[in-house]
């Protein structure tokens, strides 16, 4: 299970990569593996929309499960990945790259402190697989 060490993680299996003021959000390798083959992605927010931490920003569906993607931080949506609805399988093949979902301009960067680093997230995955 891949857990890159330059990202921050949530307990609901989202990742965020922060560059300057902007954070890029997606779901983790572990999450895509749990869901299995993704057949549908819907991004639920649009550019310029203000979102609060933990608001639903996207929905991901496989044939046997559905999951809402929660925003790890508050801020304003800068852009959304418009390729995903047509190529949902990217979430399985490249969860940390091409399958990014939303870019957000952080309104409260201190919210990042509450997120896990890669080591903590790896431990968190281990706990749950028992």
């Amino acid at each position: 299970m891949s857990v890159p060490n330059n990202l921050k993680y949530t307990k609901t299996d989202e990742w965020i990569k922060v560059e300057g003021k902007v954070g890029t959000v997606g779901i983790t390798d572990y999450a895509q593996d749990q869901l299995s083959d993704i057949v549908f992605v819907e991004v639920a927010v649009a550019p310029d929309e203000e979102v609060k931490k933990e608001a639903t920003i996207a929905t991901v569906e496989s044939v046997k499960a559905a999951a809402d993607v929660s925003c790890p931080v508050s801020g304003k949506v800068v852009s959304v990945n418009n390729d995903l609805p047509n190529t949902p399988e990217l979430v399985n093949s490249d969860p940390y790259g091409k399958a990014w979902m939303v870019k957000i301009e952080l309104s409260n960067p201190s919210e990042l402190n509450a997120l896990m680093d890669s080591a903590a997230y790896e431990e968190f995955i281990k706990e749950r697989s028992h």
Partner: peptide
Amino acid sequence: TAREQHIRREK
């Protein structure tokens, strides 16, 4: 079926 109650429950 991922839309339906047996999977999504209260959602």
